[in-house]
Design a protein around this nucleic acid. Sequence first.
DNA 1: GCGATTTACGTTAACGTTAACGTAGTTTTC
DNA 2: GAAAACTACGTTAACGTTAACGTAAATCGC
Lengths: 340, 340
Amino acid sequence: MPRRATPTKIEDVARRAGVSVMSVSRAIRGVEGVSEKTRADILKVARQMKYMPNSAARSLVVSNSNLIGISLPTFAGEVFADILNGMRQTFDSAGYSSVIDTTEYDPDAELSWVRRLLSWQPAAIILTGIDHHPETRELLRASPIPVLEIWDHTDDPIDICVGIDHFRAGQMIGEHAVSLGYRRPAFVSTPLGHDKRADARLEGLRSVFGPAGGADVAASRPSLGNAFVTGFDGTAKLLDADCPDIICYLNDHMAFGGLMCCQARGLSVPGDIGIVGFNGLDLATVLPMKLTTIRTQRRLMGITGARHLLARINGVPTPESTVLPLQFEAGQTTCDQIDL
Amino acid sequence: MPRRATPTKIEDVARRAGVSVMSVSRAIRGVEGVSEKTRADILKVARQMKYMPNSAARSLVVSNSNLIGISLPTFAGEVFADILNGMRQTFDSAGYSSVIDTTEYDPDAELSWVRRLLSWQPAAIILTGIDHHPETRELLRASPIPVLEIWDHTDDPIDICVGIDHFRAGQMIGEHAVSLGYRRPAFVSTPLGHDKRADARLEGLRSVFGPAGGADVAASRPSLGNAFVTGFDGTAKLLDADCPDIICYLNDHMAFGGLMCCQARGLSVPGDIGIVGFNGLDLATVLPMKLTTIRTQRRLMGITGARHLLARINGVPTPESTVLPLQFEAGQTTCDQIDL
DNA sequence: GCGATTTACGTTAACGTTAACGTAGTTTTC
DNA sequence: GAAAACTACGTTAACGTTAACGTAAATCGC
């Protein structure tokens, strides 16, 4: 195990360059206060000596760091990976590093991560959704650190938020289904309370079907696990119990599982049953049948959120709550029904 | 914009608890040197005052941090998400935070991230694969920080590595194909040099077909993009140009795209053509036809890597190079061929 | 040409924490 | 019962960096 001698610090560079440490500090950071000539000299010496600034020391004195904390429910399923991708690209080119957490939808896990993260005095914190442990909100509200809540929206964010209207998404699906003549809707999701956004979409769906169709939306909530399998199993259970004419899913992955289930049972889609997904994932692009879904602009959401946050970090005024538009995509898994 | 008063520091807690700062430090960290009674008192006061230790200050004085850097090529495609998941779980419960990077397979991007990360004196660094910018290797070799290279393996890692034998994986696929009587293999991948592991698998495949079948492996290398679409397009191109009887893919996603392509063209699988994926992704579980693939234990790999690294951090001897076994899964997308 | 400003530095004092060492009491040892 | 060993603290001095201020010399204005 190699144990190196103490790495070169700013003082070593200063001594070798024949200037004070402050000049080196200024030269490295690119701030005013050194002539172009000495700056060039210093940078050359620093490179030669392989000088590497100590972020902890810097962070300690400026009470701030170039770390940005990002909390996501999960990496599974591309959705949050897409959002993350958009954010990371933006933060990275602005010189920030990402400290990442996955909560698996557990508010307590989120809270303990936030606590740990706060000890680093991060430049900003990003949480997924608007439902958090009360103490998380309290902690973050009390801190001067900019906070972004992403993927959902509210009029009362901790600080700022960028997301979509999940209730409205459910409504859009409902309106489409009703207009095509579907009357016996069902929804395949995860256990109630697990994913609040999915629950909101179901509510939106119900708000349309309640009055218009006079029918409630049957909901299947398979236990957690792989989305494809969950979609498959949830569909099987629904088909056994109720007799839906259209099934909506928490996301495209589950919808695909459902499609496979219908196919395995010899049901014709959309002849016998309609299928609606959510998110507009790439998976759907190669299917023999275009999936009816709602396209969410996840990368754009990530980029937008990151930009707003950077503005906030730099003290530029930013909109508190941003709602991105939803794109409904009518596919070949839903079509006009010959009623009754 | 709220701007809080200075947050409580260790000295405030000490004053209020009527002890010295060192006692508070010891009590908080759970090290010896305080009686159980005073420790309890101190912890109570600290909680009341919502004391939050400053990680930068701690990091500065101990020349170390509880940050672990993890560099992945991409979040797309579940593979690295699975590995990451296994690692994060292990690190998280050991009290470490993860600083994450995605290189998009660019060694320069990896290098500049490593540079930034080193300024935080991380507890460990994890890189994907064994091919890095020479300066990255130099930098990390010179540092006392434990380094894990994951997903691939070599006898000469920067520090330690945990992965699979990609060449062998290609061989296994080749042996299976040859034994079933396939003679005109093809491979759909990404541009040469982009993903070194995929290239190694192709080499393994070739090493079998070269002597045994007398046939070289035709390789289609569509440009980058979504894996499903890439698999679809690459297959289309192959079917137009060559006349393969079995197509192997970089991963299950692409294999699925290929399957859809064959289906769209009215080709029977495995009657007309065999399909082989890689990774054993969950996607395959709901397909009407079990995909022939090689299952990689990605979560296990993440956990194993993380454990070895934690051991290394704590000075416990660790194997330099660990190779995990591959599980070949014969599915329904390959079968005996009536030759010629 | 002389005060006022600007430029290009250097000096000093933190930032909040912990390692290393010091020191009273208390307990153990034989 | 006195030396030795422990226990439970406290004191001091870093860790590497930057904000704030100080200070010469150069430049400007009129």
